[in-house]
Simulated assay, not measured.
Amino acid sequence: MIYLNDSRASYFLGPLRGVGETVAEMASALSEVLARLGQDGAYCLGYSGGGFGALIFSSRLGVQRSLVYSPPTIIRESLPIVIRNGANLEGLLSPEGAVDLSHLLQGSRIPMIRIYFSGGNEHDALEIENISQISDLDIRPFPDMVQHNLIPSMIARGLFGTHLEWLVRG
Rank of each mutant, 00 (worst) to 15 (best):
14 G>K: 07
113 I>R: 06
76 R>C: 09
30 L>M: 12
103 H>G: 07
71 P>K: 03
132 S>D: 03
131 I>Q: 01
45 L>N: 00
125 A>M: 03
93 L>M: 08
119 G>S: 10
94 S>N: 06
106 Q>K: 14
60 R>I: 09
82 V>W: 01
117 F>G: 07
47 Y>S: 14
92 L>N: 04
85 N>G: 00
46 G>A: 10
101 L>N: 09
133 Q>A: 15
22 T>L: 09
127 E>A: 13
147 Q>M: 13
126 L>Q: 14
134 I>N: 00
19 V>A: 11
31 S>M: 09
119 G>Y: 02
17 R>D: 15
144 D>R: 04
79 L>F: 05
85 N>W: 00
78 S>H: 14
35 A>R: 15
18 G>C: 01
110 I>A: 06
100 D>R: 00
97 G>V: 08
62 G>S: 10
130 N>G: 05
112 M>H: 13
49 G>T: 04
78 S>M: 10
90 E>G: 09
119 G>Q: 09
115 I>L: 14
139 I>P: 01
112 M>Y: 07
79 L>I: 08
35 A>T: 07
55 L>W: 02
106 Q>C: 02
54 A>P: 00
77 E>M: 11
112 M>C: 08
55 L>Y: 01
120 G>H: 02
91 G>P: 05
123 H>E: 10
113 I>H: 05
26 M>I: 04
137 L>N: 05
41 G>F: 14
38 G>A: 08
84 R>K: 12
12 F>R: 05
44 C>N: 14
136 D>N: 13
81 I>S: 13
44 C>P: 01
103 H>K: 13
51 G>K: 03
33 V>P: 08
44 C>G: 02
48 S>Q: 08
120 G>C: 07
81 I>G: 01
132 S>R: 15
81 I>Q: 12
93 L>R: 11
103 H>F: 15
124 D>T: 04
127 E>L: 04
28 S>N: 13
100 D>F: 06
127 E>V: 05
114 R>A: 02
109 R>P: 00
51 G>E: 05
138 D>N: 09
49 G>N: 11
55 L>E: 07
35 A>S: 12
67 L>C: 07
92 L>Q: 09
11 Y>H: 06
23 V>K: 10
73 T>W: 03
37 L>E: 06
97 G>P: 09
33 V>C: 12
135 S>R: 14
93 L>D: 03
45 L>K: 01
65 R>L: 11
83 I>T: 11
82 V>K: 07
118 S>A: 15
133 Q>N: 13
66 S>G: 10
18 G>A: 00
117 F>W: 12
28 S>C: 03
69 Y>T: 04
105 L>R: 08
95 P>Q: 08
56 I>G: 06
67 L>G: 04
54 A>T: 08
49 G>S: 12
124 D>M: 02
124 D>P: 04
88 N>E: 10
14 G>I: 10
70 S>A: 15
38 G>D: 05
